[in-house]
Write a protein that binds this DNA or RNA. Structure first.
Lengths: 117, 117
DNA sequence: CAAACACATGAATAACTGTTCAGATGTTTA
DNA sequence: TAAACATCTGAACAGTTATTCATGTGTTTG
């Protein structure tokens, strides 16, 4: 019987499993990474990021463009802020949002490559 | 009163809004992209992809490494398969999974750059 | 100062999601 | 052929989440 014909774990190929477990990123990093993807995984938030990659926009601009309420946009912007995906600049009563850094745009571009294969 | 002091939409700066709306990706592409991010946004699925980027693994290997039930892994692999993020190779009763293409790994690497700033 | 305005926030609700459990499918072994 | 095995699948439940609604905060305008 070939070794590869059997589920390794049941035959305690602990070396292989241990190696993978040892090499893995720490839990905090993985949780943070999953969180970034999760945040970009909502259509409204993703579209916000797409538009912000092209222009600095205020809340009601975004609401009008996206076709959702300003309240909904504000809630989502808070989530995006929490992951440092967007930043904002206050000017009087206005709040102008933009992407926090270039990583976000690069991440979206990378995702598009997979989608538009 | 400066034009930038006012929310453009209320003053119907339709040119700006229309330009962004015209430039935007079509709904299908955006939905697909959000879906990719959403799928990678679950810690279990993300960890599966991380491990599969290092080795071809069967379901019970993954279950052992992740510390979750084989059923849960199988369910999540189906989701990953649905987005063509992973593929599998049958060999008797075993199913060996691996990443579908290099985009996935590139996407995760790009995400890590943002997290490990 | 009072009203209008842009935005933020808390609570509530409806919709969604990941895991578990029980059972099914198809393959291999004794 | 029967039992063991690896995997898959449907239903159900608990936990999470995005939006709405009402209200609060701070700024600007008349």
């Amino acid at each position: 019987m070939k070794e590869s014909d059997v589920c390794q774990v049941r035959f305690s190929d602990q070396a292989k499993v241990d190696l993978l477990l040892k090499r893995q990123k720490d839990n905090r990093t993985m949780a943070a990474l999953a969180e970034i993807f999760r945040v970009l995984g909502d259509p409204t938030r993703l579209r916000i990021c797409m538009f912000l990659s092209q222009a600095e926009l205020c809340v009601c601009d975004l609401a009008a463009i996206l076709g959702v309420s300003e309240s909904a946009v504000s809630h989502q912007l808070r989530v995006l802020r929490g992951q440092r995906l967007v930043k904002y600049r206050r000017e009087g009563k206005m709040a102008f949002y933009s992407l926090d850094d270039d990583h976000v745009q690069a991440l979206i571009a990378q995702g598009l490559e997979h989608v538009e294969e």
